[in-house]
């Protein structure tokens, strides 16, 4: 009987300690390199890029290295006067993903009043459909990611009353699969990233009771591979961002102790690049701000004391969530 699995092997000379200063330098100078083709390719998701970098910096207690006032001004100029939604970059069309990123950044800065809050609320509410689902933009793509964007965004603004929560929850639950996991739409395959979105939605809406918690948690534990890393679906390679999505979901389910923390920590540390700084998806790959945030957030959930506590539902510093007096639900065992 074959027990072989798709996995990676960690080499002996991998990084074994946390290179905090390197990561802070990496994020502070990200995009300063004139030859950085990668960087201009990401104009279409700039707003999320700012969220990833700022949150990572906040978790390292280094956010003063980010140009706060310029960022706030940038966000203000990305808000669409008509719809109220926020776009990835100036001149782009508004989208739920970037509206959320912008609100997360403003919430961390405690400056949501820099934008037209009522406009954002109007925009998010306008995306909800009859069946409770949410569009991502005016072109009508439906995905459980957008349900999560909607409730997270409105909860940060204390305006969850603007949407039909029961219907939003019902739609998310209609995406639950026979294995206890969730996909993007009813019937779509279970996927760790989308499980995070769905569990997160239920956590914010305080409906964690609706989950098949043991079944789901077991499916999530099954994602851990011998290398210690976690994959997002059966028979896929481990990836640092999936490690975050699985771990944060398990945290909301109050079962994070079911993963092998020591092995997972080794995997996360091995995803650091000791030269450039930052984290990559797998050991040895090119680093980026996205995986850098999820590497740091993952270590925070594992209890690393050099990183500020992160909130598993919001993927933001716990201190921000406390200041906003938000209490996303964690399941009681």
């Amino acid at each position: 009987m074959a027990f072989t699995k798709k996995d990676v092997t960690l080499s002996e000379d991998r990084p074994k300690t946390l290179l905090l200063q390197k990561h802070s330098d990496y994020l502070a100078s990200y995009g300063l390199n004139k030859d950085d083709y990668e960087y201009c390719m990401t104009e279409y998701l700039r707003m999320s890029g700012i969220y990833w970098s700022l949150t990572a910096m906040e978790l390292m207690n280094q956010s003063s290295r980010m140009p706060k006032e310029e960022i706030i001004e940038f966000i203000t100029s990305c808000q669409d006067k008509e719809s109220g939604g926020i776009s990835a970059s100036i001149g782009h069309d508004p989208h739920m993903l970037y509206t959320l990123s912008a609100i997360q950044v403003l919430a961390m800065y405690d400056r949501v009043n820099a934008i037209d809050v009522e406009g954002v609320v109007r925009y998010v509410a306008s995306m909800q459909q009859e069946d409770g689902s949410f569009f991502g933009d005016k072109w009508g793509e439906v995905d459980t990611r957008f349900s999560f964007c909607a409730v997270m965004c409105l909860s940060l603004l204390h305006r969850l009353d603007a949407i039909n929560i029961n219907k939003a929850v019902d739609f998310v639950l209609s995406c639950m699969n026979f294995d206890g996991g969730f996909g993007s739409k009813p019937g779509s395959e279970s996927h760790a990233g989308l499980i995070y979105c769905c569990v997160g939605t239920l956590s914010i809406c305080k409906r964690m009771d609706a989950l098949h918690a043991d079944e789901l948690a077991w499916w999530l534990c099954e994602r851990q591979l011998p290398s210690g890393g976690l994959n997002g679906r059966p028979e896929k390679l481990p990836d640092l961002c999936y490690s975050w999505w699985v771990m944060s979901s398990l945290s909301m389910l109050n079962r994070i102790h079911w993963v092998d923390k020591k092995n997972l920590e080794q995997f996360i540390l091995a995803c650091q690049d000791p030269e450039t700084g930052g984290f990559s998806d797998r050991p040895g790959d090119i680093t980026d701000p996205f995986h850098t945030l999820f590497g740091l957030a993952g270590l925070s959930l594992l209890g690393n004391e050099n990183i500020k506590p992160v909130n598993p539902t919001y993927c933001m510093p716990q201190e921000t969530i406390d200041r906003l007096k938000l209490e996303p639900q964690i399941l009681l065992i």
């Binding site: 502070a28 100078s29 990200y30 995009g31 300063l32 390199n33 004139k34 030859d35 950085d36 083709y37 960087y39 201009c40 104009e43 700039r46 890029g49 700012i50 970098s53 980010m66 140009p67 310029e70 960022i71 001004e73 940038f74 100029s77 970059s89 100036i90 001149g91």
Partner: peptide, 15 residues
């Protein structure tokens, strides 16, 4: 040209 927004975060180096 792209209105780059906050400088150190968003300096664009296009081909």
């Amino acid at each position: 040209p792209e209105n780059d927004g906050p400088k150190p975060v968003v300096v664009i180096a296009h081909s």
